[in-house]
Design a protein around this nucleic acid. Sequence first.
DNA 1: CGACGATATGGAGACAATCTCCACTTGTCA
DNA 2: TGACAAGTGGAGATTGTCTCCATATCGTCG
Lengths: 188, 188
Amino acid sequence: MDAAKPLRADARRKREAIVACARERFAEGTFSDLRFDDFAGLAGVGVGTLYRHFPTREALAEAVFHGEVVALLARARELRDTLPAAEALASFLRDMVDYLDVHRGLAQTLAALMATRASTLAEGSQELERAVLEMVDTATEDGAIRRDVDGGAVMMALHGIGAAHDRPNWRAEADGLITLLIAGLAVR
Amino acid sequence: MDAAKPLRADARRKREAIVACARERFAEGTFSDLRFDDFAGLAGVGVGTLYRHFPTREALAEAVFHGEVVALLARARELRDTLPAAEALASFLRDMVDYLDVHRGLAQTLAALMATRASTLAEGSQELERAVLEMVDTATEDGAIRRDVDGGAVMMALHGIGAAHDRPNWRAEADGLITLLIAGLAVR
DNA sequence: CGACGATATGGAGACAATCTCCACTTGTCA
DNA sequence: TGACAAGTGGAGATTGTCTCCATATCGTCG
């Protein structure tokens, strides 16, 4: 998947500079407002270079996103290995809210991008989704949660949480939703 | 809110033609892909006229959306008057999924617009939100559902459902999420 | 180490979409 | 019916995206 690219030394430096700069814009929420040309200037490269490395805005977003997903996946794995399935899932969902709270700029931007063009964020979000689904499945097999609802429903809820970042008391509502999910998932 | 506008006879005809045309584009999902200028042509008006009536794409979306909301509100009211609070809420949520399923083009487009610019859909969505919150509150007062989670959480979930329309088996997942919500809301 | 091919760079300008402006048309009222 | 307010359409200004290529830099091999 990432073979066939021995990228020249200096080129890589530029590439990284771009991603780093993008990450900052993400964090402060200015990413989508910024003219792409101006962004190039900000990152200290020419427009041509920017387009060479990332042909579209989404491609760039993907690169940043991917880095973040790696961290979340590590967290998921850790929980899975140290807690019973149902608790691991619950903790992970809570952690996701924390994460989305701290990285709200990123969450917001990603949500906007996903909404406009389904496609390209696929790579990273699929990986994340796979992790969530796996936790749900494990918990289901353990008999720790109900069998008649699949993990996709949980993903939808997370999607909603990430997308609704403009709501005035987001945090409380997000926590509430997670509470509902966990309660709803419990076997009766 | 809509006083001070004795809009001239022919002007109103044009305005309605625009909204009607927009509704169709919404339904078939082409709304956001269409160049605004071309849209004007499609609706049989000049660009200037289009802009006069709807200064932004969102303003136009709002107009269409508003019409839809009216129907949903009627449904909400009907349920509220004929069923116990908890059941009314459950039915309404199920109905919302049906609605979003049938009007997926609209749901998708609205989700995309809400994600990019928080603001303007406000009018319609607030009205809808008010209805949902009211149902939740009533149910809470009846002691029919738990007290520690507020209606905003439910709104977030709906938001997720509306936004995730590209998921391969959306319908099943959406139903699942509603099931989780209802189960989660039940008092123990 | 020199020098040559491959690789990468930056930004000028082609292109595309949005939006403004105003000369002209149409409705309305006395 | 005349006259004035209200509304219209579309040419073109404005603003952002993306391509293209002359130039610069890397790295490797004699």
